[in-house]
Design a protein around this nucleic acid. Structure first.
Length: 265
DNA sequence: CGGCAGGCGGTTA
DNA sequence: TAACCGCCTGCC
């Protein structure tokens, strides 16, 4: 499948800015991974995306957020805030992926107090242990992310071999909780799930439910808000208020530019 | 070996 | 409601 006219998305910026954990870079610069139950390899050349795998154009347009005008958003952010321009320059090709709600809930519970290589290893283990085989792409055996119903009867002990650590209890508890991740879950509802606090809930809102105003504040955002904007590192309330006032409906997108600029540079 | 990594939950003052 | 601490694990 070929999608043209997409010069504004950059795959490395998008897949390696910390929002997702299931895309692997190939030697040719393409990325292999899964979105929902669809596996694919995605390669970019000029303004063309070559997508080799499951799913149709509509599916990938939605997942890769290709129909949002990021040029307009970047211009709007830079006009409202004179300091974010440099952060945008560090990752101008970032798109916010429209990820599955349930997968995002579990993935960001795993992300707490954790590092990216290990987060990826844990998620891969969950998929291999409890997901469905989804074919072979670029020599990689692909497994779907296990749904809530699949994990609902699983205990923390059953998850031991995946080495989730103390997060195993959170995953088992969240999977057993009575809610529908297919609904547009509110921030307050997400906070009721075991292992979900303010930071994780904000990430789930942004990455799993498309709430572009959600502004997750983690250690890296605290650092950049301190370094660039002069906030005290423990003044998360002040940072949140600043984001609401200056970034507004695009707070989550601004957060990704800011996060990426300090984490990856 | 202690410190740390994209926090949370529980306790304490 | 702010501050503090323990927590699984892997890597430095």
């Amino acid at each position: 499948m070929i999608i043209t006219g997409r010069e504004d998305i950059n795959l490395a910026d998008t897949f390696e800015c910390g929002q997702c954990f299931r895309w692997e870079r190939e030697d040719d610069g393409s990325y292999t991974g899964m979105a929902g139950d669809k596996a694919a390899n995605i390669r970019a050349a000029g303004d063309v995306l070559y997508i080799d795998g499951d799913g149709d154009e509509e599916f990938w347009r939605r997942y890769l957020d290709l129909d949002r005008d990021y040029r307009h958003i970047k211009r709007t952010l830079a006009e409202a805030d004179d300091k974010i321009g440099a952060a945008i320059e560090a990752g101008p090709g970032i798109h916010i992926l429209a990820q599955d709600g349930w997968e995002t809930i579990v993935s960001f519970i795993i992300s707490q107090n954790n590092n990216i290589p290990r987060i990826k290893k844990c998620i891969e283990g969950l998929c291999r242990g409890f997901g469905e085989y989804a074919g072979r792409i670029k020599g990689r055996e692909m497994y779907s992310f296990p749904g809530k119903e699949r994990l609902s009867g699983v205990s923390a002990e059953d998850l031991a071999e995946i080495r989730l650590g103390y997060r195993a209890g959170y995953i088992a508890g969240t999977a057993a909780a009575d809610f529908d991740p297919g609904q547009d879950l509110s921030y307050e509802t997400l906070l009721t799930l075991p292992g979900v606090g303010p930071k994780v809930a904000s990430c789930i809102r942004l990455f799993g439910y498309g709430d572009m105003a959600s502004f997750p504040i983690d250690v890296w955002v605290r650092r950049v808000m301190n370094r660039v904007y002069g906030f005290s590192e423990n003044d998360t309330a002040g940072m949140k208020a600043y984001a609401e006032e200056h970034f507004g409906a695009y707070g989550g997108i601004a957060q990704q530019y800011l996060f990426n600029s300090v984490k990856n540079h």
